[in-house]
Design a protein around this nucleic acid. Sequence first.
DNA 1: GAGTGGTCTAGACCACGGT
DNA 2: CCGTGGTCTAGACCACTCC
Lengths: 232, 232
Amino acid sequence: MPEAPTGYKEVKAEIVRRVRDRTWPPGALLPSEIDLSGELGCARATVNRAMRELADEGLLERRRRAGTRVRTAPQRQARLDIPITRDEVEATGAAYRYALVERSVGPAPDWLSARIGLPSSGKVLHLIAMHFADQSPYQHEERWINLAAVPDAAQADFSRTGPNEWLVRDMPFNDIRLDLRAGAATPTVAAFLEIAIESPVFVAERVTRLDGVAITLARLSFPPGYRMRLQT
Amino acid sequence: MPEAPTGYKEVKAEIVRRVRDRTWPPGALLPSEIDLSGELGCARATVNRAMRELADEGLLERRRRAGTRVRTAPQRQARLDIPITRDEVEATGAAYRYALVERSVGPAPDWLSARIGLPSSGKVLHLIAMHFADQSPYQHEERWINLAAVPDAAQADFSRTGPNEWLVRDMPFNDIRLDLRAGAATPTVAAFLEIAIESPVFVAERVTRLDGVAITLARLSFPPGYRMRLQT
DNA sequence: GAGTGGTCTAGACCACGGT
DNA sequence: CCGTGGTCTAGACCACTCC
């Protein structure tokens, strides 16, 4: 037997191997941590970590007393890393450019209050901006910021730094909700993205909250060709 | 000091607290595991697990010798729960219907081999299917299954059960990659979805792997109006 | 070279939940 | 009840990397 350096990674690999070759088919009960550590010649804690990570990854299912089983319906979750637009552009090797198009302060429109849960008559900062990659339009951004939650935003200078970069600097813990859809380019957005009207645009609407209070709603529109990537 | 039951969860909470209240501002160097375990009165392994999980979650950044720091740009993540199409439709209260359109077995086309990493001359099962919600087209599905990894799929009956339901039941996997984009409906897809050619369609391409080996590639197209939701 | 995180061990106690 | 996973401990060695 491969009694090589028996680390938790080797244990994970061995378990995956046996799941894959049907030694342990979906639904099967695996040996207990004690038994498996005995067989593989390592400490129980090592097997524990391997099994725990595989359970986190969705391959296994663990219950006290009942033991560890191969999931029949693997927990299917993918994660999206939400990047700063600047980083996202620069990661492709392109030069990033940002431009503020419009800025205004006023009472929140009714649809916005309803959408993200603001008190009526709440003041919001409304921004429209563009992001470019090597002079090509990369993203059209329309954003509303709840000034009751982020009063400093009223004084912030968004002509050089995008609102997302500014907001991210100070708020590590928010609830984020993302709505993704395919839409047809409106005349305005089409002009900014330099595409034909009615072209398919990828639209991401992101609501950010802190302790339940809405901070901002961002509507990001991307021209055809943009891909959003998620992984496990 | 809160010398309560000092478990790794309490340690995590304490670290989060100090990051939030600026005891450790973004970019700050945290104490070493040994120092912190001394201060909190627990074993180093406990602090290690707490810090390791917080690093996995994107709050901290760890490097040997350099120590542990608070991330300056917290990597924000949103999660997508990938549902079975049947469940997704039935959750809206609509009746679900599935229909197999086409089924064939053959060598993998070059683009597919390159895209998901198959040996040339690998055999794949190619399927086209439709999913309906109350008789309205809900999703057009085109799928390729790697028969080297899932030989049983060649004998499976996909006329009643969708390939996704079948795969999920019988085939474990632990790595999912999703590519989302907005596309223009091709004549074929437009006909199936009963929409105009060139209409914006939401396209999700999903590659599923087990231990690095590609199981299947699914290309799912949704008519206008579909929204995909993610949250933290 | 020295300090930090990465990991393993052997043992222990606890909490949960099937039987 | 009692076996299983969940967690903690104290100690140890290793690998990497910054100085």
